[in-house]
Amino acid sequence: MLLMAFDSTQQALRAEMLLEYAEIENDMCPTPKQITAGCALSLEFPQEEYERVKQIIAEERVEIRGIFFKKGDQYVNMEA
């Protein structure tokens, strides 16, 4: 699973709606303390949907902090 973090709750809820509309499985969860974000909510989604999620986020201009994967007990930004 990948994790998308946000700077605002509004953007998190918007992304959740967009992914559900695209029929991409997702789960709203608390943002892990290892990720510095302005919002306490993050979205988890399957790694195989990464390219589709990136496309939706770009097309709909959703503002995100980043998309992360878990490596050990740390979260690594996919874009870094």
Rank of each mutant, 00 (worst) to 15 (best):
V62S: 07
G38T: 04
E79I: 11
A5N: 09
S8C: 11
A12D: 00
Y21P: 00
A12Y: 00
L13D: 04
C39S: 09
V53K: 07
A22S: 08
I67T: 13
Y50H: 14
A22T: 02
Q55N: 09
I64M: 06
A80D: 13
L3W: 10
I24N: 03
L41I: 09
L3H: 09
K33C: 01
T36C: 03
A5M: 08
L13N: 07
F45L: 05
D7L: 04
F6S: 04
L41G: 02
M1S: 15
N26Y: 00
D27I: 03
Q11R: 13
L3E: 10
E20R: 10
A40E: 09
L19H: 02
F45D: 06
T36Q: 11
N77W: 10
I64E: 04
I57K: 10
R52Y: 07
R52S: 14
G38Y: 01
S8M: 12
E79L: 12
P46L: 00
Q34P: 07
I67E: 10
C29F: 00
M78W: 14
A5F: 09
Q55F: 04
G72M: 13
V76D: 08
P46Q: 00
L18E: 03
F6T: 05
R14H: 06
L43S: 05
I67F: 11
Y50I: 13
A22E: 08
A5K: 08
I24H: 02
L41D: 00
D27Y: 04
D27K: 06
Y50Q: 15
V53T: 09
A12P: 02
D7A: 05
E63F: 08
G72Q: 12
K70F: 06
R52V: 14
M1H: 14
A37I: 01
I24P: 01
A58S: 13
R14A: 08
Q74M: 13
F68Y: 15
M28H: 05
L2T: 07
D73F: 14
S8N: 12
P30Q: 00
E48T: 09
E60F: 04
R65E: 13
P30C: 00
M4F: 11
M17V: 03
L19G: 01
L43M: 05
I64C: 05
I57L: 12
F68C: 11
E23Q: 06
E79Y: 12
Q10H: 08
K70L: 11
L3G: 11
V76F: 14
M4L: 15
Y75R: 12
T31H: 05
C29R: 07
K70T: 10
Q11T: 12
K54I: 08
M17L: 06
Y21R: 06
E60S: 10
E44C: 03
E63I: 14
E25I: 05
L2M: 14
Q74R: 15
F45R: 06
G66S: 13
I67H: 12
V76H: 14
I35Y: 05
K70Q: 15
E48F: 11
R14W: 02
G66I: 11
V53C: 04
S8H: 12
K71H: 14
E44R: 11
M17E: 06
Q10I: 07
A40Y: 03
F69L: 13
I24M: 01
Y50A: 14
A15C: 01
F68V: 09
Q74A: 15
A12S: 08
E20Y: 03
I64L: 06
G72E: 13
